[in-house]
Design a binder for these strands. Sequence first.
DNA 1: CGGTTTTGACCTGCGC
DNA 2: GCGCAGGTCAAAACCG
Length: 294
Amino acid sequence: MAMDSTNGECSSPTASAVGLLPLFGSSRPPPAESLEEKLRRVSEENRRLAPALDAILSADRSNHPRALATSPPAQQQGNAALTTQAATGVVVTAEPRHKVRTVRARAEPADADANHLKDGYHWRKYGQKVTRDNPYPRAYFRCAYAPSCPVKKKVQRSADDNLMLVATYEGEHNHEQHAQSEYSYINDASTTSQQQQPQAGGSSSSTLPCSIISINSLGRTITLGLADQRRPGSSSNAEAAAVVVGEIVTPELRKVLVDELASLLKNDPEFIESLATAVADRVMERIPAAGHIL
DNA sequence: CGGTTTTGACCTGCGC
DNA sequence: GCGCAGGTCAAAACCG
């Protein structure tokens, strides 16, 4: 990670060359598809997932009608357990009463050995154990950012599907999510499909770890403001993502920024949930009567 | 060299 | 009380 030692704030890697690629270091693959293609793909995916999502939402409405009716996505607190499934395939089950959250996320085949779920916090592994009911070892992590932070998590691959990671979070972070933690949360596009950000116990730490993108291009500076730069009244990072300061000059640079923005939004659980809700609502609107599927 | 991971040993809770 | 399983500790190894 990159820390600005002069002011203590997090800073993004600065591209000094004309091409500005990669924006976030060598690990980022070059953009393989255009934004239009991405949008088409996402739309297609949304269309495909809409029925399943609707079923899930319907189930949730019947189980916890008040929770869904009154709680905005970013405030998944309350007395009722809440399960959500976003377009990423990540399932989050929260049991606020016990400060325990279970996150299921699909791991990339390339990460078959990894037993770690990137979620924006900095974890230190302190143990590993093979449990009786699962051939895959369970890893134990503690929050490593603050020594006094009581949050722990357990990560284990699903016995049924070894590509499914099951992470159990216990406790509540007593600090803000820190940029130092896991920068790749928003930047490593290759793992975005499996990332899920914990918002343990409703601490308002739904901010992204580091979101100031500062690019120095031929003497021009471009800054994307996110996370703690969130404007008052902005309900999500998606809205805040619209804050772009600086000058966009070349089409290449423009494309890079658009791709980056798309990547940021794709990684924003709030945005994804809002998008999923909107899609579900549209689907519901177009169903004239019960029992009719498009 | 300092932080992180690994891994065997130890502790604790629970069921019988 | 005993055994088992899950959870934690801590020293050594590893890594950047």
